[in-house]
Amino acid sequence: MKVYLSGEIHTDWREQIITGAEGLDVTFSAPVTDHAASDDCGVAILGPEADNFWHDRKGAQINAIRTRKAIADADVVVVRFGEQYKQWNAAFDAGYAAALGKSLIILHGADHAHALKEVDAAALAVASDPAQVVEILRYVLTGALPE
């Protein structure tokens, strides 16, 4: 099973899921989580921009190539909304995955439940902890319930 891990980049939630899923037949992919590299990929590849708008746009478009491919190739898309920042890109990824008919798992804390109610409604599961995502993957692949 191919799983794309989208969303916030400031905590170790991806590593928790990857470690927890050891032994399962799962391949994970993710966006570039080096914030500076993600922001600067456009100008590093296509040349500098004096205007920050175009600097950001170049990076966003190159990152979109990677993201669209990863979501299209995924069987399951997990989108994490963290506590510290507004993740507009995560909301976009969730919508894109839903539009493609991907199996979507949303991961966030209780304090985001109201703000993300429409995103949650598009998901097949809404988890509050990375361990729950692991258990969903384990159940989907093996039929085994948590002990």
Rank of each mutant, 00 (worst) to 15 (best):
A115I: 09
D56G: 10
P146T: 07
D40C: 07
M1S: 07
P130A: 05
G23N: 06
S103Y: 15
P48N: 15
N89L: 08
T11S: 14
I106S: 12
R80Y: 13
Q84G: 01
R68Y: 09
L46D: 09
A37C: 07
I136H: 04
W88G: 13
R80Q: 15
F53V: 10
K86F: 14
H108P: 05
Q132D: 10
D120H: 09
F53R: 11
A110R: 12
E15Y: 09
S38A: 15
V119F: 08
D39K: 12
R14P: 05
G42W: 00
A94K: 06
A144P: 05
L141F: 07
G82E: 04
Q84W: 10
L141C: 02
Y4D: 01
K69A: 14
G109E: 08
D120G: 10
V119R: 04
V32S: 08
V76E: 04
I62N: 00
I9H: 09
R57G: 00
A94P: 06
A110L: 10
V78P: 01
A125M: 09
G95F: 03
H55I: 00
D39I: 07
A144T: 13
I136P: 00
F92T: 11
D51Y: 06
I9R: 14
D51A: 07
L116T: 02
N52K: 11
V26A: 04
E15Q: 14
I17A: 02
A144W: 07
K58W: 01
P130E: 05
L137Y: 00
Y85Q: 15
E8S: 11
K117I: 09
G95R: 05
I17R: 05
A44R: 14
W13S: 02
F81H: 08
L100D: 02
E15H: 10
A131Q: 13
R138Q: 04
D51N: 11
A144L: 11
E83H: 11
N89K: 06
Q16F: 07
W88D: 13
V77C: 02
Y96A: 09
T11A: 10
V79F: 01
W88N: 13
D93I: 03
